[in-house]
Structure formats: structure tokens, C-alpha cells
Computed example of a mutant assay.
Amino acid sequence: MMSRTMAEAQLPKRVDAIKLVTVSQQFNADIDSKQLTRLSEAVEDCVAPVHCEIRFERDQEKHRLLQGSCNTSVVMICQRCLGNVTIPVESSFQLGLVFDDDQAKQLPKRFEPVEVDENGQLDLWSVMEDEVLLALPMFPTHPEGDCQFKQPGSKPETTDSDDKRPNPFDVLAKLKQK
């Protein structure tokens, strides 16, 4: 079996989250962003893998946690000039691993609950995809000065056809005269 360095490692898709908490597992690995369907649909292009630095652990109050960060780069449409803009996306998170809604309600507010299945399994890719989606800007734009946005002229352009167009209220004026 060929060993891979940590930077080249692919993040496992499904994991036994409860077991990983028990052994305080850490990952420094990537997900091929093009395989994340919801992310691909939300942006024009995924141009970098989603790099994840995460750790499974317990806090002092014995809550099971998934903590860390993820980052990537995506291409979105600039809301100013409608051109493509590459956006760096970063997210830091503290997630509480729970089995049900009752456990979620008992989590301190600083933790966002993430539900594992009855066997403690977690779709890690889906969780990381959620974090990236939540970090996407609502109104992506180029940095100030880089945008291709053209300011309209001070006076709107008029054409001869504007002058010749009939006024729809002329009909009402004629009726009123009768």
C-alpha cells in the first residue's frame, strides 16, 4: 500500500464520528470540490479543492465536537459588472455531534448541531460542503477598482423613436373630450 502525505490525502466521505471523537482524530485533507454537487450548482466553477483542517474531540463538558476550518476558491458572477470573479471562501466552525433533536437542544449555543445516524456515522463531505455554502458571499463583487463596471453617462441617451412613440394616454384624453 502506497502511503500519501497529509497534504495529498483525500478526506474520507463517511466516517464513524463517535469513534473518531474517542481517539481525538485529526484530518488535514482535501475534497475534490467538483464532486460536491450542491456547491457546483451554486457557483460558476470550482477552481480549487476544499482544503479541510478538522479535529474530532470532546470539550471540557464532554460534548462531542467537530471543529476546524475549510477553504477553497470558486468563480461566481460579479453583481456589479456581471463578469466572472474568483472568490476565496473560508469557514471556521464548531459543530456539536448529536444523535437527535433532544441532544441538539442541550448543546451550548456556541455549537451548531450536526446529527449523526444511529450508528454514529457522518457524511463528512456533506458537512464540509454545508460550511462552504454558508460562507459564500450573497453579493459577490470584484475588489474595489478591479471591476469592469462602466458608469452610465450623466444623461440618458434618447433616440428619435422615443419621440415618435404614441402616448398610451392619448386615447383617454380623446374620450374625456367627448
Rank of each mutant, 00 (worst) to 15 (best):
G68K: 07
C81Q: 03
V75D: 11
Q103A: 06
L97Q: 05
I87M: 13
F93L: 04
D30E: 11
N71M: 10
Q60H: 09
N84W: 00
S92I: 03
Q35S: 15
K109W: 03
Q60T: 10
C81D: 10
M76G: 05
D100Y: 10
Q106H: 13
D30F: 03
H63V: 09
P108S: 11
C46I: 01
I77R: 05
T37V: 14
N71L: 05
D45V: 00
H51S: 12
E41A: 11
R64K: 12
V47Y: 00
S73E: 15
E53N: 12
V75W: 09
F93S: 01
C81K: 00
P88K: 14
H51G: 03
Q103I: 01
D101K: 15
L39F: 09
A29M: 04
R64Y: 13
I87L: 09
R80S: 12
R38G: 10
C81A: 07
P49H: 12
A29Q: 13
D101P: 08
D59W: 06
E41F: 06
R55I: 12
G83V: 02
K62S: 13
F56C: 04
R38D: 12
E57M: 12
G68P: 07
C46W: 01
T72G: 07
C52H: 05
D59Y: 07
T37R: 11
F56R: 06
K34E: 14
C46P: 10
T37F: 09
S40L: 10
E61H: 07
T37Q: 14
V74S: 01
T72E: 06
D102K: 04
F111Y: 15
V47G: 07
R55F: 02
C78M: 07
A42L: 06
K109N: 10
Q60P: 02
L95I: 06
Q79K: 12
Q79R: 12
T86P: 02
C52F: 03
V43T: 05
Q79V: 06
C78H: 06
C81M: 03
V50R: 05
F99W: 09
Q67R: 14
P49E: 06
I31T: 01
S40Q: 14
R64L: 09
S33L: 02
L36D: 09
S33G: 15
A48H: 05
N28L: 11
Q67A: 14
A42N: 09
Q79P: 07
V50G: 04
Q79N: 13
D30R: 13
I87E: 09
N28A: 14
D59N: 15
F111E: 00
V74N: 01
Q94W: 01
A29R: 04
V47S: 04
G83P: 00
V43F: 12
G68C: 09
H63Q: 12
A29F: 07
C81Y: 06
A29E: 11
K34M: 08
E57F: 05
E112I: 11
R80V: 08
